[in-house]
Amino acid sequence: MRRRTAFYVFIAISFLAVLYMLSDSARAQAGSGQVSVAGFGKSNAKPLPPGGPAPRTADGHPDLSGVWFPGKIGREDLTAEGNPARLQFDPKVTPEEKPPYQPWAADKVKKLSTLDAEILRPSVNCMPRGVPGMFMTNPYPIELILTKTELIQLDELNNNFRVIPTDGHPHSKDPDPTFNGEGVAHWEGDTLIIDTIAIDERTWNNFVGWFHSDQEHVVERISRPSMNYLSYQVTIEDPKVLTRPWTSAPRTWSLGHEALQEYYCTNNREEEALKALRDLTEGPKK
């Protein structure tokens, strides 16, 4: 082997070795990394069984009513990061494609600095998640109440709610934008289809910058395949931002047996802290 080649390979290997040692020392610095709370960071929670058939309403539709938690275990499990039972879908089984942004929109999302992406995120600035955020970017439980004429959705997060008529009437002409939009639903077999337009442009469709235009059209499909499970899927069309409609993977919510708690965002310190950090690291901005 030529001396120069050997020398450069040696440099590369030494570099890698140094990196490994540094990362190793970072781990050592952490001490044992062990928490004495049993099961912290893991979870033994098993997915709920199907629980038999879904209850039906007097007119024969699946009764969607219940308190629903995202994931498969029917409750919150705060320390169970990464537990498959809590995930709403398995990307290996039903992968969800990235939003098909138009080039200008992809560019805009790409240009968000990490800190700007946090500061503008509705979950950080305590703005309503809106539609479909109430399902798509919501780690807290919801309660659905299906009446003869409406689906009422109560969102523990930020004490939000929306009321959706289920008679399938046409949208009004040019409704004012609202965070939950103007939603109207109808049944197709055992699936409730919610059609929503006029959504406030401050909502995001994911946690990482998927903004939308005033032309966004959201179609949600909700069904209850069994007693313990709710299935949710959404199609988003946005001719100003996307190149074509996008459809989510089917997402799973599971039946809870506790009441929603009150959640008003009355002590948000994050926005200020993130702005201060942004000033520190990226220079002052508006």
Partner: peptide, 18 residues
């Protein structure tokens, strides 16, 4: 790791302190 809030931007998850 995209949490539902801005934890990752503000805190350093590679270190633990007591």
């Amino acid at each position: 790791v995209f949490a539902h809030h801005g934890f990752q931007a503000e805190y350093d998850g590679s270190k633990v302190i007591y």
